[in-house]
């Protein structure tokens, strides 16, 4: 079975009690719940506590023992957080950077991945190996020179500085190339004989068959870009060019003891990522299971 098929089974397990050893029943439910339920609580605790705190008053948050259930739900912390820092701007910046990077990766990785998979051209193997080799180099080796390059190009402290180095990824090219090679070549050949151009074949035949792979690349790239911290920390300087991750650090630093406010900001910063996760859980799982990558 392919890893992808396995990955789909992880995301969509069937729920059925019956399979679990009917003999030796000393509980009305599977004893695994005794392990899994506390584990799930521990994993969810930081998230739940963040949400609870974001709905408390300042006084409630600075009470010990902690107030587990707030007296009333202070949704007002959310607009307060939005007012006390340029979150709107940071959201917009992050959205512009992330969407540009995702769209550009889908396009450029598709083009390059398709050429590496199907077109025979001079220097193909060598170029491909060279691109793959860059995957082995950790970011901290290239971050200082990349900063200098961005500065030389006049992009320092601008959104293009956040976008340009991430417009295409060797990882994406590799992933799509591997996927394209699994598609039946006969369809493409037939279309070529019918007079379709390479570009036409790619866009009308190959890409429509590759939607799962494209979705996987898109969500992984989205997660990387949305959550990235180190490169924005290097590449931009003014608050008006901050991404959410940079903004959060400044916001937390200047509202150190105002935890309800900080938590409200934190919850908001995670919402787009969480919505995407729940909408496309299978693609996250597949992306991780097949590629073994987290940014």
């Amino acid at each position: 079975m392919t890893m992808e098929a396995q990955a789909d089974r992880i995301a969509w397990p069937e729920e059925a009690e019956a399979v679990e050893r009917p003999r030796r029943r000393w509980l009305p439910f599977s004893p695994w719940h005794l392990v899994l339920f506390p584990l799930a609580l521990i994993m969810l605790l930081p998230l739940v506590w963040m949400i609870v705190t974001s709905l408390e008053t300042q006084a409630e948050s600075l009470h010990f023992p902690p107030v587990l259930v707030p007296g009333s739900l202070h949704f007002g912390n959310y607009p307060s957080a939005l007012r006390s820092a340029p979150f709107g701007r940071w959201f917009l910046n992050t959205f512009i950077v992330t969407s540009t990077v995702v769209v550009s990766n889908l396009l450029l990785c598709s083009l390059a991945g398709y050429a590496f998979a199907r077109i025979r051209f001079f220097g193909r193997a060598a170029t491909f190996m060279l691109l793959l080799a860059t995957l082995m180099v950790p970011f901290q080796v290239v971050m200082i020179p990349t900063f200098l390059i961005v500065k030389k190009l006049g992009l320092f402290d601008s959104l293009p500085a956040l976008i340009a180095p991430n417009l295409v990824s060797a990882f994406g090219i590799f992933m799509l190339r591997q996927f394209f090679r699994t598609l039946p070549v006969e369809l493409e050949e037939a279309a070529r004989i019918d007079g379709a151009s390479r570009l036409g074949v790619l866009f009308k035949i190959v890409l429509p068959l590759s939607l799962p792979a494209l979705a996987t690349l898109a969500v992984i790239q989205f997660m990387w870009t949305w959550n990235d911290f180190l490169w924005p920390l290097i590449a931009v300087f003014s608050q008006r060019n901050f991404t959410l991750q940079l903004g959060l650090t400044v916001f937390q630093g200047s509202h150190d003891v105002f935890w309800p406010l900080v938590m409200a900001g934190n919850v908001m910063s995670m919402i787009p990522m969480l919505v995407l996760f729940f909408a496309a859980q299978r693609y996250f799982v597949r992306g991780i299971a097949t590629t073994g990558l987290k940014g």
Binding site: I10, P13, E14, E15, A16, E17, V19, E20, F29, S30, W32, H33, L36, F37, L39, A40, L41, M43, L44, P46, L47, W49, M50, T53, M223, W226, N227, F229, Q245, L248, T249, Q252, W259, V262, M263, N266, S269, M270, M273, L274, L276, F277, Q281, F284, V285, I288, K294
Partner: peptide, 30 residues
């Protein structure tokens, strides 16, 4: 294994993966 609530358990274990390092740090600072 195939038991009740398994999707809930798996989701609970997976969700932190999509939290950024900074969001995670803020949660744990608190």
């Amino acid at each position: 294994r195939k038991i009740h609530l398994i999707r809930f358990y798996r989701t609970a274990v997976f969700v932190p993966v999509v939290a950024s390092t900074i969001a995670t740090s803020i949660m744990f600072l608190w």
